[in-house]
Design a protein around this nucleic acid. Structure first.
Lengths: 228, 228
DNA sequence: AATATTAGTGTCAAATTTACACTAATAAAT
DNA sequence: ATTTATTAGTGTAAATTTGACACTAATATT
């Protein structure tokens, strides 16, 4: 190894995930109890292994908690305040992830003490995890305003009223349903199915599916969902 | 130190900066020759010191190259592919930065071999620095489409035609100047000065300044500069 | 058969966006 | 001093998008 490398200090590298879920009513974050003091809620996290990339590690850690693969995962921010972990200096790369709550096995509580918390009612969090969640919420709002990522939080088949409720929850507001569905449908990203949702409402709403081909293409396109 | 920390591998942590500049004609990136082989161009970078935060370290490294402080600096992405640096595993947190080319002392070439390159004509770069630049360009385009960060690349006093040329360069296009100036001025972020630019054009264009008070407030607001 | 509940849709006014071309100011040239 | 060349600066009309607003449709429940 060259001298210029040898002289440098190495640091521990952690990954922490802000895991968002939607239960049909409100936007939730999945928190666990672990670590130094088992009394404090924290984000799900773990250490980078020598043979892993960052996203790969984040995906592994997410899998260990939820049993889920193929989950929406996006790098949020690298947190590196020298004193963020008071025991030993650690850099944490935070990822935010969108999961379909219905999908995952409740394998969750087996090994980790895990619980969903409304984003409007979070407990005190370990280290700088509170900052991470705040930033993740800002990023989700920012991103969902222009990119069709909301679908990632819903089952494969969903109704327009469900989607509207999700957006209501993300932005803590109440969109006009006529304008909302006009805007959503004008993206041509949804395929209307012949099937209606049963049991939830008397009339029943039609299910829609994401047009995956178009979705892949337009991940980068702007949608401009949120006015003013 | 607790066991769970001791068992973990530490990694070297580097910071690399994509430094954008605008010379009035095209968008440039500042590259240096350094490192393992002094034959390859690379981004300006350095190592995280034990007492520094990430952004602080990026700012220091930027200062060491350019002599500039108070520069626009934004975390771009953490790159952590296990083999990105073939000699020893290193995580690199990349920052992108917007500098006013005219501002900085040409202290540059003294200690480092540095040179501006057009973003459309880059040399081969060290490690994954090419990916970093590509991502930074995407991010700049994305961000400048909605946030008024273009000003960071211009002198404190600038003309509308200069600003248009900058946006033309960023998006590699040619905006309609009537629509462009209407859109820019409608943000009310610019203060028209009484002074005209001399020497550049026969008629001379009025200088404008950013209304810093408003600018601070609206860093988060959307502008929607770029149509379709 | 009536009722209650949620789904689904249409219109109009206002604002925004786009496309497009002429006049204004001045330095340079004659 | 007049002409010329060059870039600055501005306006309008059509199209599109947005936002505010309220009624009818379907069906499960009573």
């Amino acid at each position: 190894m060259l001298d210029q490398y040898k002289q440098q200090h190495p640091y521990l590298l952690a990954l922490d995930s802000i895991i968002f879920g939607f239960d049909g009513e409100s936007l939730k974050v999945l928190l666990v109890k672990r670590g130094v003091e088992e009394k404090t809620w924290s984000l799900m996290g773990g250490w980078l292994q020598p043979d892993e990339g960052l996203e790969q590690a984040a995906a592994r850690i997410l899998f260990e908690l939820t049993g889920l693969t193929n989950v929406y995962l996006e790098q949020l921010f690298a947190f590196g305040d020298p004193h963020r972990d008071p025991i030993v200096r650690t850099i944490s790369v935070a990822y935010f992830s969108l999961v379909k709550v219905a999908d995952y096995e409740s394998k969750i509580s087996e090994t980790f003490q895990a619980q969903w918390f409304s984003i409007y009612d979070l407990p005190p969090l370990l280290f700088d995890h509170g900052d991470m969640v705040k930033l993740a919420i800002r990023r989700l709002r920012y991103k969902a305003a222009q990119h069709p990522i909301g679908f990632e939080l819903l089952p494969d088949k969903f109704t327009i009223p469900q989607l509207k409720k999700l957006y209501d929850a993300i932005y803590n507001t109440d969109f006009d349903k006529r304008n909302f569905s006009r805007k959503i449908l004008s993206t041509n990203l949804l395929i209307k199915l012949d099937e209606k949702q049963k049991g939830f409402s008397k009339r029943g709403a039609y299910y829609y599916q994401v047009d995956m081909a178009k979705y892949q293409q337009t991940t980068d396109s702007f949608l401009n969902f949120i006015p003013s």
